[in-house]
Amino acid sequence: MRDLKTLKELVASVTDWKSLEKMSCKPFKPSILHLAISQDAPHLYSEEQLIQLKKLSKLLSSAESKPNTNKTDKRVTKKRQIEERPKEERVMPATIKKPRKIILEQNGPSPDLPPRRIILEHSGPSPDLPMQFKNRVAELSGHDLKYLMHKRLFWSDVKPNNNRLSMPINEIMCEFLTQAEIEKLDERNGSNGKGRLVGLELTVLDPCLREFTLPLKKWSMQRTDTYNLVTDWNSIVSTNEFEEGQELQIWSFRIDNKLYLLLNKL
């Protein structure tokens, strides 16, 4: 407002548009400033200039009154185009693929109890097994090679007093036991079936392909059942100098019908 007032004071002595035109060093170009001055001092402009300013005024009024519907119109048009397509051609929003779930059933500890449902999640393809392990499996005439899990060793897995490797069932990627082996893991000593778990004897190949024979047992925990390698697990820990935080890949394979586990140290 101060600039407009100052300008009006400067041109107050000008009596007609010709005098104003002489003061200007540039040709006339309609602008908002000229439009404001012309409202109070139309005598400072020629008839042709006033016509140009009138057109500018109409143009500005039209732009202010017109709603900004450009973006809305584009969204509506795009939505209509999608709705008009056949269902099979419509592009759906991108979704995150969830891991594939495998639901298994294991027999309960007694015939009177219903089978236990175990949900395994497979998040992707199995990692590659180093060639020296594949060659050893081939030398032993092994078959049915399966990737079971990625295992980070906790303090409880290497603590000598525990003497066991824990493998939570809900972290194992696939079923690797036969029905007979599943039933074997539920067997207990004693005539009343309330003694200690018998376990399933198997062979473990350590990262240096040395063989150890030890039992696999299934323990029922609060959150999930776990498979545990017990009894001689400390020998594998000490021989390989396993420490807390080290990572293993655990694989299974079979020679005839006998179960083997393979430990690949990462």
Rank of each mutant, 00 (worst) to 15 (best):
C208S: 14
L50H: 02
N135G: 01
T239C: 10
L53E: 02
V91I: 11
K58I: 11
L205D: 02
Q39I: 11
S13D: 14
L145K: 07
T226V: 14
P130V: 03
S141A: 12
P109N: 03
W17Y: 15
L120W: 05
Y227I: 02
P125K: 10
N170H: 11
Y260T: 02
A138W: 13
Q106T: 06
L53Y: 07
G245I: 00
P207E: 00
K26A: 14
I169S: 06
L50T: 00
P109Q: 04
V237S: 01
Q132Y: 15
E175L: 00
G190H: 03
R100V: 06
E21W: 08
F154A: 12
A180S: 12
K151V: 00
S123R: 07
E89F: 08
P86G: 14
K258H: 13
A94Y: 06
L263M: 05
K5R: 13
P127R: 00
M149C: 06
K87I: 08
I37P: 04
D232Q: 12
S19W: 15
Y45I: 01
L44N: 08
I96P: 03
L104H: 10
I82F: 15
K87M: 09
S238F: 03
K159F: 13
S238H: 14
K159M: 13
I82V: 06
L200S: 04
K71Y: 13
R90C: 04
L140M: 08
S38H: 08
N68H: 11
T203Y: 15
W251K: 00
L7F: 13
C208K: 10
A63F: 09
E187M: 07
N107A: 15
K159G: 04
L248T: 02
Q49F: 07
Q246C: 00
N162E: 14
N189E: 14
V76C: 11
M173Q: 12
M131I: 07
G193D: 00
R164T: 09
K78A: 11
W251A: 02
K217H: 06
